[in-house]
Structures are given as C-alpha cells and as structure tokens.
Amino acid sequence: MFEKILVEKEILHNQYTQHILNKLNTSAPIIIDKLDNHWGKVKKPYLQKRTNLNLFIGKKRGTLVKEAPDAYGLDGAPHFYFIHSYNCIYECQYCFLQGYFNTPDLVLYVNHDEIINEISKTLQKHPNAWFHAGEFSDSLALNHITNEWSEYWQFFKLNPKAKLELRTKSVNIKNILTLEPLKNVLLTFSLSPQDPSKEFDLKTPSTKVKIKAMRKLSDSNFQLGVHFDPIIYSDDIEKNYNTLITELLDNVNLELINYFSLGVVRYTKDVYRQVKINYPTSKLHSHPYIKSFDNKIRYSKPMRNWLLSSVKEILLSKGVPESKIYLCME
C-alpha cells in the first residue's frame, strides 16, 4: 500500500503508531527526526501517489483546531475543523489537495489526546460548536488501520451539545458499526451520481456501494449527512440526480439525514492549474469556468444557480425539508 513508512521519533511508541505499524505489518519503519524536515519539503508530482505513495506518522503541532471558513455547515453554530491527517488515498480529479500541498504523501497524526484536549478548550468558549474531520483527508478511508474514532466517540458522548462530523467517500465503516450511535456524531458521505463518480472520483467505492454502507449505518441508527459536492455539469444532470436521490431515500432513513450540503465544483487558481496538468483530457474541462467573486475558478453564476436550484428542487420534490438543505461555499 505504501512504498515507505516514516515515523517521527517522538511518537514511535504512541499506541496509535504501534497499532498502525502492526496493521501494516511494518516492524522497521524509517525513523525521522521531525516530519516537517521531510514531508512537503520538496515538490513532488501529485500523481506519484499512483505508484509511490509514502506514509508519514507524526505529531500534529501548531494550531490543532481551526475555525472553518464562512458559509461552512449549517447556520447558527460556530464551525471548527481539526486535522488528524493530511492527503488521501483516493484520486478525485477535482480534488483541491493536488494544488494545496507540495506532496501527495500521506500523514497520519497520532496525538489524538492533544487534539481532543484542544477541542475541549474550544468548547469552553463555544459549547454548541461543530467539529469537522476530513478537511484535508478522508475521515474513514484508513480507519481500519488507524482506529482513532472510539476515543473521539467517548469525548463527544460526554459533550452532547458539541457536534462531530466525519466526512468520507469510503465505505470503511466496520469499526464505526461497533460504536454506539450518538446523536451528536454525524457520518457524512460525499455522493455523486454513478456515471460522473466513475469518471471523476478515481479509486473511490461506487455510489451504489456507498449507499449500501449508508443503509447499514442508517439501520443501526447512526446520524448521517450528505454532501452533493462538487456538483459537476453534464447534459443529463437532472436525470442523474433524480436517480441518485431516489436510490438514496429508498435505502436510508431521511430522519437520520441531518443535512444535504450542495456545492458546485470550484478551484483555487493553483488547484485548477494542477487539474489541467494532471487530467488534461478530463471532461471537467468541457464546461466553461470563470474567475468568480472570490477569485476562485467556478462555473458562471447563472450556471451555478441553475445547478444548485435543479438539485435542490429534486430534493424538495422527494420530500426533503428545505431546512435540511444548505448551499456550501456560495
């Protein structure tokens, strides 16, 4: 799975480090002084992840919990995210990670006690806050190796006003199903219709399989969320989302879906440059982009409005209450 495994000396004996090494059958990883002296220190091509992906295990330093950008999450509560990992094993063609870091190499941080401690401090100021994982990685894709969430579960059980969102494109829910469903912990899935997903979300499980995983969680009463983000234009987009939403609501209890977040594909200038380099013939480039109000590269406003209103209309027509739908980053 990984070409090289590199571990920071300071956390070599951390229980999570040992767990990960054990799961990966690695008895002799490369020991490094500090992660920052190696990870991202040289510019590595993003698509190196296809053949030579390295794993770094380290200690997250600096700010452990950060305020989320505006227009993030449902209105009314403060939103924060925490970083337990950098980079992703999947390869979504539009992913911002390809222009964000200088390396595709994966980092798993293992000082979860310190991250939770910081979440606790944040809660003292913002008792109703939301905490999001998966901003720079997929929250569950490697959970079978990392197995960190039970510690967070315990914390959020004791802090029922706070909310935790684990965002994923994976179906790696085996460990999660062993945990107690909590009202304030949401497993949220990024979903796209089947065909665009096959084309753009490389190496991710198919939409059908994701819905199957959501069904299992729904049957066990876990709280869920859905991200239709990014929505990418295609000629049959209305038909595709109609099929997707029908299939989703046929399988998953709508009561357990806390929200549907809708966002249209967008990039920073640097990310878009990388997308063009990495995927020059992708159908992502078939529809025009403009530099929009916040200098991000997006579809034109009429196109964005049309896409968002089309998907929103389909949700409403299927009985999803308007209060559960929000537009992300618009």
Partner: peptide
C-alpha cells in the same frame, strides 16, 4: 518521472518529465 536536487539539503524545486 521526477528529478529532485540535493546539495547539502534538498532543493524545493523538482521537475517532472513529460513521460506520463
């Protein structure tokens, strides 16, 4: 695929060839 440079320390810049 990619050429890095080392001269006492790694140079940040690397160059990726056109062989995809």
């Amino acid at each position: 695929r990619c050429a890095y440079q080392y001269f006492d320390d790694f140079s940040f810049k690397s160059f990726t060839s056109n062989d995809q």
